[in-house]
Write a protein that binds this DNA or RNA. Structure first.
Lengths: 208, 208
DNA sequence: CCAAAAGTGTTGCCGGTACACCCATGG
DNA sequence: CCATGGGTGTACCGGCAACACTTTTGG
């Protein structure tokens, strides 16, 4: 009866918010999907355990990772308490594990398979917190590459919030509030006018 | 190495934000003060354990009580993880335990005695969260009796935020946003004009 | 020349803040 | 009559939302 750590790993892919899930190859919960997690090791810190799980599954570190909530007695799980975290990753940086037994895969946050251990509760809570953090922090930095266009950034916001935003208001806000700045470079893609590239002023979480 | 629960119990007393602390009569931490807490019992829920601790120390229930954060390896504590909660109580409803060994007492949040188990970190975090929740929720309901005057309510806000507020703006806000309503009754006290009594529209936590 | 995305300003509304005076009561 | 707290309105400012057209490019 030790403590367990579970990590909700979000990304935005094809204009959809997605979550990393693992198909369980053993009981309990065989054949269902679950959030990545595991037991806290002897002498390990909570933040350390969460970062380890995240790195195990995605290969990334140095991304936004924050404690979410602590649950007790989640479903059939054997842990006394489950400390949950949530992380935001740029899908382009991720290399998923390719084990035969415990397959990780991205799933759109809308339209999930059956989940083990009442992970739906955890996910709902994480999604709510993510949406609210978008509004008053710069956490989106962790979902985008070093350089990007404002349109790409806006698509990420829209995927998470689930509604279209006004282009002019969006731009005024993110540059005006000091979240991003121009790099001076531009990017040409397809039959379009070249787009200015932007970068985050800070790649650490900050409250606006 | 089980999980422990710790509760930060706030009240407002004589226009000061205060916290309930317990003087430790045994090691570790003998002679220091600490937040009330204990080990999670077999089969007990986290919320249940927090409510039990709160009721043990103050006799109250049905007040605002919410999970705060989960810490690992706090000081010399023996718990693997410590799940912290914070509660808001009306000091008039509280009857403190009067054990000889483990004395509970209110301490002003500014100017605390030496604390055991790194409880300063927990307290700082709880205080910050309380201040921010004041702004966008009705949690203050849990610090006041059923009926009260707007001046009393304003004093509670000022004690917690640590700065005076404008009377007219305060009143407009709390009635306008539907936090409180008039009861129709008035209260006479001393050499003053009678004051209208108010009550909370909802005595459950709500976001504004 | 057409389709597709980039880029750009103005206006109205609302919420928040600053600010000062008169009133009812008990002693 | 005076000291004490109760009660009230207005004006300014800044952030936020709504809204439409022109430009550049590749095919």
């Amino acid at each position: 009866m030790a403590a367990a750590v579970v990590v909700v790993i979000f990304t935005v892919q094809q204009e959809r918010l997605s979550v990393l899930l693992i198909e369980r190859a053993a009981d309990p919960g065989r054949g269902e999907w679950a959030l990545p997690g595991g037991v806290l090791r002897e002498g390990e810190s909570l933040d350390g355990a969460a970062a380890r799980k995240l790195a195990d599954e995605t290969g990334v570190s140095e991304v936004f990772l924050e404690q979410l909530y602590t649950f007790d007695r989640l479903g059939e799980g054997r842990a006394e308490v489950v400390v949950t975290y949530f992380a935001l990753v740029d899908v382009a940086q991720v290399r998923l594990r390719t084990d035969l037994e415990w397959r990780p895969a991205w799933h759109p946050a809308r339209g999930l398979p059956p989940l083990a251990f009442e992970n739906e509760r955890v996910l709902r809570y994480a999604e709510e917190r993510l949406r609210s953090k978008l509004e008053y922090t710069n956490v989106v930095y962790s979902l985008l590459p070093a350089q990007f266009t404002l349109t790409e950034m806006q698509r990420v916001y829209e995927a998470i919030l689930g509604e279209p935003m006004d282009k002019r208001n969006f731009r005024r806000r993110v540059v005006g509030l000091g979240i991003v700045r121009e790099t001076g470079q531009t990017l040409k893609r397809g039959a379009h006018r070249p787009a200015r590239q932007y970068e985050f002023i800070s790649r650490a979480p900050m409250t606006l």
